[in-house]
C-alpha cells in the first residue's frame, strides 16, 4: 500500500497514493499508516484526494488508525472524493472525524 508522509508545519500529512482502500488492502493500509506515523507527536492529516473508492473494510482501517493515534494525536481527513464522502456520510463517520474538502483547507484550519 503506497502512502507518502511529510511534515507540513505542525502537522504530519499522509497522502494515499492508490485509488482504492478496500478489503484487499485494508490490513496493508493499517500497517502503512502505523509505520508512517509511528514515533511522532503531530496530529495527522490523511489526504484522500487520490482515493476514488472505499468500502467498509477501508473505513474500519481508518477508524483503527484513529484509535492508534488517540488520545494524544488527532486524525483529520482531507480531500474526500464523492464516493468516499458518501460512505462516511451514510455510516455517520463524518461526525466522528474532522473532515475538510481539501488538504489546503485542513492545513489552514490547523495552523490558525
Amino acid at each position: 500500500m503506497e502512502v507518502s508522509a511529510n511534515n507540513e508545519g505542525k502537522m504530519c500529512v499522509v497522502s494515499v497514493l492508490e485509488a482504492r482502500i478496500d478489503a484487499a488492502v485494508a490490513l496493508a493500509f493499517k500497517d502503512a499508516m502505523r509505520q508512517s506515523t509511528d514515533g511522532g507527536e503531530a496530529d495527522v492529516v490523511l489526504d484522500l484526494g487520490q482515493v476514488t473508492f472505499i468500502d467498509s473494510s477501508g473505513l474500519g482501517a481508518i477508524v483503527a488508525t484513529m484509535k492508534f493515534l488517540a488520545p494524544d494525536r488527532k486524525l483529520i481527513l482531507a480531500g474526500l472524493t464523492p464516493a468516499v464522502d458518501k460512505v462516511f456520510k451514510l455510516t455517520r463517520m463524518d461526525t466522528v472525524f474532522s473532515v475538510f474538502n481539501t488538504l489546503e483547507q485542513a492545513l489552514a484550519k490547523q495552523s490558525s
Binding site: V63, M66, R92, V96
Partner: peptide
C-alpha cells in the same frame, strides 16, 4: 443495523458497516 458512533474513540466500531450499507442502499 446502523452502528452507534456516538461513543468514546476507543470504543468506535471498526466493522459491522457492510450489511448496513447493503440494506441502506
Amino acid at each position: 443495523l446502523p452502528q452507534n458512533v456516538e461513543v468514546d474513540p476507543f470504543d468506535m466500531p471498526e466493522g459491522g458497516f457492510g450489511w448496513f450499507l447493503i440494506k441502506d442502499l
